[in-house]
């Protein structure tokens, strides 16, 4: 097909003019969801990792179970269950709530694993030095262990935050009007592929800087190490 047709199919100016506000709305919602998920999932995951470092076997069993479950289950399964199943059992959650809840739990599982790996990487002498100066468990964790552990976990935490934000696109399946949903409904109203291009560009606008930034940060780290 000709270059001309290609452009009018994927970059039709009239379509861009008509649909960009919808895409912007979608971006706002995606950003809102991302913040809500990262705050809740991040805090929950961090708390679980801290609890795990207390090393109570019975509680740790459940933390590991929780983390394994949410790491092994495709997120679409709980999304469908909560959105379509719960109302029949008498509890109706909005699509936004379902998406936020599910992805927060998924993120919490990954954050717990990343933080726990960071905590475990700290030599036991750090715990001993702090405890023998009279600091309690929580103080030691806050002032000595976590500052070091989180620095170690930072690369995987940022990767997980990016990954979970991308997963907000799953909201399109249950009609959360985030970017992808806005783009594909605009595409079906208009019968043009241009809204899809706009949607893809919106994602690139959000994630490309993050991906390039993390690559840059990694190469700087590697260079320092080498």
């Amino acid at each position: 097909m000709s270059i001309d047709r290609f452009f009018t199919t994927f970059f039709d100016p009239a379509m861009i003019a008509r649909y960009w506000p919808m895409i912007i709305e979608g971006m706002a919602l995606t950003a809102l969801l991302a913040v809500a998920i990262i705050v809740c999932g991040g805090v929950l995951g961090l708390l679980l990792a801290c609890l795990r470092s207390r090393r109570w076997p019975a509680i740790n069993f459940f933390i590991v179970l929780f983390a394994d479950f949410w790491r092994a289950l495709p997120p679409l399964v709980p999304i469908l269950l909560l959105y379509f199943g719960l109302p029949n059992a008498g509890l109706e959650l909005s699509a936004f709530t379902v998406l936020w809840l599910t992805l927060s739990l998924v993120l919490a599982a990954f954050v717990e694993e990343a933080c726990w790996a960071g905590i475990r990487a700290i030599r036991p002498g750090q715990w001993e030095a702090a405890r023998s100066s009279g600091m309690g468990f929580v103080q030691t964790l806050c002032w000595v262990i976590l500052p070091q552990a989180l620095r170690i976990a930072l690369p995987s935490l940022t990767n997980r935050a990016i990954a979970i934000t991308k997963m907000t696109a799953l909201g399109t399946v249950i009609g959360v009007p985030e970017i992808l949903n806005q783009a594909s409904s605009a595409q079906s109203f208009s019968g043009s592929a241009t809204p899809l291009t706009l949607g893809a560009l919106a994602y690139l606008a959000i994630f490309l800087p993050l991906v390039v930034l993390s690559r840059w940060a990694e190469s700087r780290l590697a260079w320092k190490r080498g």
Binding site: A169, A193, L196, A200
Partner: peptide, 14 residues
């Protein structure tokens, strides 16, 4: 940078 679902819908519907 592209969510896989976006890529999928682009390939399938675009």
């Amino acid at each position: 940078a592209l969510p896989p679902l976006v890529l999928l819908i682009f390939v399938y519907a675009g």
